[in-house]
């Protein structure tokens, strides 16, 4: 008897889960804050400052969505998530949006029932070695000891790369990036491999960054992007087009400085449609007409976010590379706002 009641309760709970996830926008509006999953700490992408305010490249995506939906970039409830709990937190409805440098892969998209809404950073796995090793290419690394984070896609990519090139290596398994830096500096491994952005951030912290060289080979595709749950396309659209809006704003020259001025109306119909002085794009998403004005006014366009958090003026010092606009030879290409 008790069991039946329990199962019944669980079934009701399951139904309620389906019902609740159908209108994330309403839930967010009702709560007044966006619940956003971020990394527990990744230089340049997500970190709390001395006052406990989260900042970083991924954090900016959360803030942009909050600005679009609620008109306030600070109305975000950040949940620091580890790699193990991130997808469960999203699936169970603990967060509305996951922006946690997560690689878009087939199985994560299809099998884990997530919806990746786009790519905010094109990363790839690279190698860092000491300069005095005299290595100029990853293919010369035969017999090298390699520090590698266990349980990540990087580990599999590494095995593939060395097998394809028919060279041998000795893995030194490590658990965290912090441990890897120490092991690498202590000479426990010749080479450290992880995402190229991570390598750059790591190298920037060394006493003598010049003593270490990042090898030219990028051995994997790591498109990092924000994701939402399956089952609420409307919400996915909002996040997707917020991200596209950030990218398109850079392409069209809309910045946090001039957005207020451009919102009054310009000669460019696409800018007018984006900023709400023409058409009803905001209403189609269920948002205010000035949703993108709020977004760009509070966090800036994609280029501004990049420069402020991970660009060449920051200690991390990443070049735009693949993350430049398509007009500059990069991969950023927003579908038209029409």
């Amino acid at each position: 008897m008790k069991k039946t009641v329990l199962f019944g309760a669980m079934a009701v709970a399951g139904l309620a889960a389906g019902a609740a996830s159908a209108a994330t926008l309403d839930d967010v509006r009702a709560a007044g804050t966006l619940r956003c999953g971020v990394s527990t700490g990744l230089p340049g992408f997500a970190a709390p400052d001395a006052n406990g305010v989260w900042e970083g490249f991924d954090v900016a995506v959360c803030r942009a969505v909050a600005a679009a939906v609620l008109g306030d970039a600070n109305a975000v409830d950040f949940s620091p998530l580890t790699t193990q709990v991130r997808f469960t937190a999203l699936a169970s409805g603990e967060i509305d949006l996951l922006a946690r440098n997560t690689t878009w892969t087939f199985s994560r998209d299809v099998d884990l029932k997530n919806e990746f809404v786009g790519v905010n950073y094109y990363d790839g796995q690279g190698f860092m070695a000491r300069r005095d090793l005299g290595v100029t290419s990853a293919k010369e690394l035969d017999g090298a000891t390699v520090c590698i984070q266990t349980g990540t896609t990087t580990e599999l990519n590494l095995a593939d790369f060395f097998r394809t090139n028919n060279i041998s290596y000795e893995p030194v398994p490590i658990e965290t990036n912090a441990e890897a830096q120490q092991q690498y500096l202590a000479g426990a491994c010749d080479v450290y491999t992880t995402d190229a952005s991570g390598l750059a951030a790591t190298r920037a912290t060394f006493e003598n960054p010049g003593d270490h060289v990042i090898l030219p080979e990028i051995i994997s595709k790591e498109p990092l992007g924000p994701l939402v749950r399956h089952g609420d396309q409307d919400w996915g659209d909002i996040v997707r087009w917020t991200l596209n809006g950030l990218i398109a704003a850079e392409e069209l020259g809309i910045t946090s400085a001039n957005v207020a001025e451009l919102a009054a109306g310009t000669n460019n119909p696409e800018i007018n449609r984006m900023l709400g002085s023409e058409g009803e794009l905001g209403a189609m998403l269920g948002l205010d007409a000035d949703w993108l004005v709020n977004v760009i006014g509070s966090v800036g366009n994609y280029g501004e976010i990049f420069e402020a958090n991970i660009g060449e003026s920051t200690p991390i010092g990443l070049a735009r590379g693949l993350n430049a606009q398509w007009t500059d030879g990069g991969l950023l290409y927003s579908p038209p706002f029409r």
């Binding site: 700490g41 230089p43 620091p80 920037a204």
Partner: peptide, 16 residues
């Protein structure tokens, strides 16, 4: 956990 988060700020990346 906070030591990780502190280390993730660009100011203190590299302090162990």
């Amino acid at each position: 956990g906070l030591s990780n988060a502190i280390r993730a700020s660009t100011d203190w990346n590299g302090v162990y």
